[in-house]
Design a binder for these strands. Sequence first.
DNA 1: AAATCGTGGCC
DNA 2: TGGCCAAGATT
Length: 304
Amino acid sequence: MPRGNDPGQGGPHASAGALATWFARTGRALPWRRPPAPGPGPHGWGVLVSEFMLQQTPVDRVIPAWTAWMDRWPQPTDLAADSPAEAIRAWGRLGYPRRAKRLHEASVVIVERHDGLVPDVHEHLLALPGVGEYTAGAVRAFAYGQPGLALDTNVRRVLARHDRGLPDALGSVTVEERRRAAELMPPADGEGAAWMAALMELGALVCTSRSPRCDACPIADSCAWLALGRPAGEARRRQAAYDGSDRQARGALLAVLRASDAPVTQRALDLAWPDAIQRARALDGLVADGLVVPAARGRWSLPA
DNA sequence: AAATCGTGGCC
DNA sequence: TGGCCAAGATT
């Protein structure tokens, strides 16, 4: 019986070997990246924190924030014992501060329902605030070595190109993408998780969105997209303008709250954003998200 | 299911 | 310079 995961041999797991070799040699030593261990265990927390921070924030900006975070709250119980306000402050300018609030909420659930250890059961992970399909699969794979599917933007792009000859995977993850990824994942114990990590790293370092370096790609030989001459695809939806947006307004207001230990006056918020209508809308949104709460004497504060 | 949600760096 | 992109989740 041929093993089927040697490069150039064909079959569903072709090129897995070349990819693994490349990852072992080229993969970055990111601080949250450690050999997986069967869980649930204390090592799950660092991975969970990293995945929250990496939801739409680049690795380079996450590294220092992750280090400081883990230094301050080494386990879920440490974060759960602190206030959401402190989590939101420590989040700083990583963006999307709801993630900080949800990570704090998740730590509380982990303490109350999972003995203070990040769970390794998919449904339990999915039930945590701020954890979706991707993050649940990533924790299972990267923390616990399970064959969890972690179809992030990198993995989806690599598979779209290599497997389907498409320039990228647009829209949300499809059933067919999941089916195919599960089919391609090496079946051997523990190899699925390593494969996910390698694919993701390949998308981050080589098979990038803008200028893919196919000359440095370990699986270029079998890449359908390269064989087709790297055809271009349709453009994505344009991102909404940020300048002058409600998001910028929310950011400006929250920055004031983060910088103050005491509740801030309405006046202080007025100074942070000129347009009164938009300011009110932004504040409403922040309150609805639980990121800001009314305090005494008409002031505002982060959630205690 | 399309829109919303921060921030910064790169070409 | 400004559009594009970045380990998504939620409603």
